[in-house]
């Protein structure tokens, strides 16, 4: 037995990355970022608002959190929907009490299914980010360009028409992309994305249709990842989020402004037994001097501005 000779050939083995979306860069060698009003940390809270169709396909893969029981899966369909009916309102109330502006990454289909939910988000002064069409419509390289473009265009138009917001941020279901996804996002007026997990600061991605900013969003302190993939407690989640903040806050003294991202799900952190842990985390972060809480879109805009020559 042997492998074809090509298996020992490496056409992309050269300086830099093995794809052409962005150059390599060392986080600790970049020019320091100055956030508005001298803030050390920009706090980016991204609440995931999701619809899992009862008939969601399992091919080529399911987005995390997908229904997993035999059809019809009453259990997880309704549990995920709990987030849309109840959980999100706990999160909105908490943000409102603290006067925080945040981002809500919403599946496009939610705009037509639950317009009252979307109204509550926009009335709270929050940014709407497109989170694909629904959790059954994952983006992958098996989709044709036209098929994928249709999904992106529909998700964006549903949310833009409902909210009146420009909706220029994007989070793919399951943070999954195909080879064409960044090009198609830029083509549809998206200016930043949250899928890539390789940095703690924004960086620009090249697309065929102009640049797309990759905004940082933590992967391993996501509430769903900690609860449903690591099976760790809500107290363990809160501790890790605080520990994450501590290091980024400390680094901001030497390396310039950092971003603390807080990805949460309505059907996870919106649960009665968990919401006070979210409050605890926010209290902890906000007890520090120099924390600027803003929508991801506003943080992206501030980053672009900070990068302009004075």
């Amino acid at each position: 037995m042997s492998m074809p000779d090509d298996y020992l050939k490496y056409p992309e083995r050269h300086h830099g990355m093995d794809q052409d979306r962005y150059p390599w860069s060392d986080l600790f060698q970049r020019a320091p970022i100055a956030w508005p009003n001298g803030a050390r940390i920009a706090l980016s809270i991204v609440t995931h608002v999701q619809h899992f169709p009862l008939d969601m396909p399992s091919k080529p893969f399911k987005a995390p959190g997908a229904l997993s029981m035999p059809y019809p899966d009453f259990r997880y369909y309704t549990n995920r929907d709990y987030g849309n009916r109840v959980g999100i309102f706990r999160i909105l109330r908490l943000l409102g009490e603290k006067g925080l502006k945040a981002s809500f990454a919403i599946n496009g289909i939610i705009a037509s299914r639950y317009p009252a939910l979307v109204d509550a988000v926009t009335e709270g002064g929050h940014e709407v980010v497109a989170h694909g069409l629904d959790m059954g419509k994952v983006h992958h390289s098996g989709l044709s360009r036209d098929e994928e473009n249709a999904i992106i265009a529909e998700a964006l138009s549903l949310l833009r028409e409902k909210t009146g917001q420009a909706v220029t941020g994007w989070l793919s279901p399951g943070r999954a992309q195909g080879f064409n996804t960044p090009d198609l996002l830029a083509q549809n007026g998206v200016s930043y994305g949250l899928d890539w997990a390789n940095d703690d600061l924004p960086y620009e991605m090249r697309t065929d249709n102009g640049p797309l900013m990759a905004m940082p969003m933590a992967y391993e302190t996501d509430d769903r990842v900690v609860a449903d993939e690591y099976f760790q407690s809500e107290a363990d989640w809160a501790q890790q989020v605080k520990d994450r903040f501590d290091v980024l806050y400390r680094e901001s003294a030497d390396y310039g402004g950092r971003i603390m991202s807080l990805p949460i799900h309505t059907w996870v952190s919106g649960m009665p037994y968990r919401i006070e842990y979210l409050r605890d985390v926010l209290d902890y972060i906000l007890s520090h001097e120099g924390v600027w809480t803003a929508s991801t879109g506003d943080i992206c805009a501030a980053f672009r501005k900070a990068g302009q020559p004075a």
Binding site: Q19, F61, H140, R175, A176, F179, D195, W196, A197
Partner: peptide, 9 residues
């Protein structure tokens, strides 16, 4: 990769 290339996450 668990997902089809590119598994960007």
């Amino acid at each position: 990769w668990a997902r089809p290339n590119p598994d960007v996450l």
